[in-house]
Amino acid sequence: MLSPEIWNFKAPDSLVKVEKGNIVNNNCFNTIQKLHHNHLVSVVLPDTLRVPQNICETLKNDCEYYKISNVGLDELVNINFINAFVRKGIFISLSINERIDCDDCMCITPNGFLLLSLTKETYESLGLEGTPSHYYNTKQRYVVSINLLSNHFKPGKKNYDRTKDRLLTLKKMTLLINWEPPHLDICPSSVAKYFDDLKFDVQVCLPDFQMRTNYTIKVPNFTMDNIHEFVEWLGMFSLESDLGGGGESYLSTYETPQPYQEYGQVKFLQWRGFFSSQQINKLLEVLISHLKDEEKPWISLYVQGFSDVVVGWDLQEHHYYTNGDNGYVIVLNSEDYMVYQHMCSKKSYK
């Protein structure tokens, strides 16, 4: 008789990839290029009394993004839109308030692909070609991919006209868009003006920035040996948890990993919004130059992607089982770096 498991239940899978190296090679920037739609960025600066203005401002200045409500997806295949914004500069977009495991979602990647993740009914009524989702055994979710930058994708061609017609049948969504113009003299708000002229409700969104100082903190040394404990400590510190060592041990047995050093001031910075990988790149460059200018034990950067985006790492399909986070932590000192990449499982559900 088939008996069910009653004790050893396996937790949902997730993958962790750790990469180490020397800063000189600039390989630490590679991971940033793999995740395009970023939501939360946080930085921990130990032994810092005053945070340089340029670190605070990298993700505040020129990082506006726009929220456009009730947009039909046929607007995104309008040839004027594609020529003005997708072909030039770097354009990324995703739908919000839609869950990737229940509803229909869309996103636009920097290489000009419009991707839709649709339920079975929506896909069947849409009528465009797509592939079934890799994660489900039954065909209950489909991914449709439209190459906006293809030479054949213009008005007059059958493929273009048909796609535009069929996209009219999809329901309207609320989108976040982030556009980096090709030249500095073009204002990024021209994309907002474009949608505003079409009478859509456009809202400017600014990244939410917070900074916090904590005093007399035991900070572990950055060594390559105990990476998991180090990353865990970063989490404990960022969330202002009890870092251990106090008298109360009933609640928590956590202790700061050894060896550690006590610093007078440790700064925590956090930005939330919608950031492209280029913007995160700039922040990392600023952090590396800060590290070179001043003697610091280490600096950490944590970036978290969106839970409900169609594609995650390396433009591969993303899913949400009970958690849909993609994120990475980069820790650097003056010579070495470590990248701790956390990914959702790639296995299909059995």
Partner: peptide, 27 residues
């Protein structure tokens, strides 16, 4: 719903079956 999916694992369902129990099977 995610707590219910976890509960499904305790009821003897597999990962995919637990998710389907409140998603696809409902449909």
């Amino acid at each position: 719903p995610y707590d219910v999916i976890n509960l499904g694992l305790l009821f003897g369902l597999s990962d995919g079956q637990a998710k389907d129990a409140i998603q696809n099977n409902g449909r």
